[in-house]
């Protein structure tokens, strides 16, 4: 009995040690990024050396702000990512709910169609979208880039949300019907609150995907709609590129900070086990 318990404890230690190692490996790049952004020189220095902060400076951040047109790119990123979240949810939540209410072949066909959109590597879409947007006069506009993002988000989000709505117990809606819910009430007051956590998680995902998107931005953003991911490349390349590593690092920190803040804020709305107690499990 004791040996079994000790064995179990030993296993727990091993698992914790492995998780700790994994955490260190995962955290190393972002930690290095922050360290590099706070040192005057970053090139050719070992990680441990950087973490001594022997030439600590905030100069890189001020450079990133002033030389990098930071606020221009930031505004584009915020507008595109936030609009992508709002539009994706407004379109996909009712769409997915509707899909769970139709049955049989119609549902399978629509679901497969939506999923099939996910089969296409989206780099393939960049050129045709570029040509279409040029014809429509959307090339180089935020709206064009937003539409390109939505072409990725909508199939993905619909597919996820159908899965969420499928978990809403049938009895819950029937209880709603007996209580006097209209179809709108069933959707808005019964089903949506139950899958709220999933919707929030999805919103975070959509925001992160849009915020980090680079390829469409490179092809379709022109000069006026470039987001932060494209903006950062201004410091890459060129003769003096080596000297700019600190600024690139500072810029990168500024790029990832908002998405972390957003994710942490939204995370508070994710309540695990939302359906617990609704019906007998």
């Amino acid at each position: 009995m004791i040996s079994a318990r000790m064995k179990k404890r030993g296993m727990v230690w091993v698992v914790h040690a492995l998780l700790g190692l994994w955490l260190c490996i995962s955290l190393l790049p972002p930690v290095m990024l922050v360290a590099a952004s706070l040192n005057r020189t970053a090139l050719f220095r070992s990680p441990l050396d950087l973490l001594t902060f022997r030439d600590f400076t905030l100069e890189n951040f001020s450079q990133a702000f002033t030389r990098g047109d930071f606020w221009f790119f930031f505004t584009n990123s915020v507008i595109i990512s936030a609009s992508a979240v709002v539009i994706t949810l407004v379109v996909c939540v009712p769409l997915a709910y509707g899909l769970t209410k139709i049955s049989g072949r119609a549902r399978e066909a629509v679901s497969f169609g939506v999923l099939a959109m996910r089969f296409i590597p989206y780099v393939v879409l960049a050129l045709p979208l570029f040509l279409i947007f040029v014809n429509l006069g959307l090339s180089g506009s935020r709206l064009g880039l937003l539409l390109a993002h939505l072409s990725i988000h909508i199939p993905f989000a619909t597919w996820m949300l159908v899965g969420f709505f499928d978990t809403v117990p049938h009895e819950l809606e029937e209880a709603g019907i007996v209580d006097g819910c209209s179809p709108w009430h069933l959707f808005w007051n019964v089903s949506v609150p139950v899958v709220r956590s999933g919707i929030v998680a999805l919103a975070i995902l959509v925001f992160i995907i849009s915020w980090n998107e680079y390829l469409f931005a490179l092809f379709l953003a022109g000069n006026d709609a470039q987001p932060l991911t494209v903006g950062i490349t201004r410091f890459l390349g060129g003769a003096e590129a080596g000297a700019e590593y600190g600024i690139i690092a500072a810029y990168a920190v500024l790029v990832i900070a908002p998405v972390i803040v957003f994710a942490l804020t939204a995370n508070r709305f994710i309540v695990s086990g939302m359906t617990a107690g609704a019906v007998k499990g």
């Binding site: 209880a175 609704a278 007998k280």
Partner: peptide, 20 residues
């Protein structure tokens, strides 16, 4: 008649309580 207009109330096997 719709269920709500029948003046009935139903108790479900799996309770059917709104979790939120």
């Amino acid at each position: 008649m719709a269920p709500k207009d029948r003046d009935i109330a139903m108790v479900f096997q799996n309770y059917g309580l709104y979790p939120h």
